[in-house]
Write a protein that binds this DNA or RNA. Structure first.
Lengths: 139, 139
DNA sequence: TACAAAACCGATTGATCATCGGTTTTTGTG
DNA sequence: CACAAAAACCGATGATCAATCGGTTTTGTA
């Protein structure tokens, strides 16, 4: 085994620029530093170098993957948005202890952006999960 | 109006000691700095002053309320755990954009700690919400 | 009123993000 | 094959914030 610590579930803190870059790459979903700069850097009046550092940092954090295209790197998300968000949500939930279900329920309730369709989706997912959970004997 | 920025929904960043203090006070649910120190400070080998600073910080952040009992302050949570967690979860959800429902679904799915009963609770809450949501015309 | 307990203040340390300048590496082309 | 341009890489700086504690002032109460 080559990993010293199994960081599978530890998500590093993310700054606002880092998040902006991620969000952009989830849409694109693949770009060079130059392109990212054009898309979100110019409007912020920051240099290409800053964007590049951010891409590098996200790469080191394993949130982006990259590959050479001719002589420039192209970056792409390493994790799906839902995956990352889920990780962060679970981190919050476990960090503050207490009852998970009621916390989640409160989260849903506090959300002012849940429309009819979204509720439907969630309900379906829950029902789905439940049957599978029973089969898999979720503790 | 006296407030410069409506911080209603902005939750300040919380360190590990701050969270520990909050978690403790949700259990207690009211204590002096001395008591908090005895409960969670001693085990960490930190001074009463450190605990007091933390209590003060949480008070300034409006997460604790306090009142004098004889000459010492007693602190108590200003927000319920579910409330705070919900705020943080929603912050994460909105920060990363994308589809809320699928992100929440992924969160539930990624959780390995949801048991049969918890799922039940959540489902009930959703059903409940839905009817109310329709009545309130949630966008 | 004296004193012990607690609040208050301010300084220090240590992370971490954001930002950019300067240097090295790579590569396409004349 | 040499060279100029483009990109990666490295390292420094500034800002913010949590955590920590020592020292000083305030305040009940015996």
């Amino acid at each position: 085994m080559t990993q010293d610590t199994p960081d599978k579930l530890a998500i590093p803190p993310l700054g606002t620029l880092e998040v902006a870059v991620l969000v952009h790459l989830w849409r694109v979903p693949e770009a060079s530093s130059k392109e990212v700069h054009a898309a979100i850097g110019v409007a912020r009046g920051i240099s290409v170098n800053t964007v590049q550092s951010t891409l590098e940092r996200l790469y080191r954090k394993k949130l982006l993957k990259r590959f050479k295209a001719s002589h420039a790197f192209r970056y792409a998300p390493q994790v799906a948005r839902e995956q990352l968000v889920a990780g962060l949500v679970n981190e919050v939930l476990s960090r503050f202890g207490g009852d998970t279900a009621s916390s989640l329920a409160a989260s849903v309730e506090a959300a002012n952006w849940l429309n009819e369709e979204a509720l439907h989706t969630l309900e379906a997912e829950l029902k789905n999960m439940r049957t599978r959970g029973e089969a898999l004997h979720v503790r």
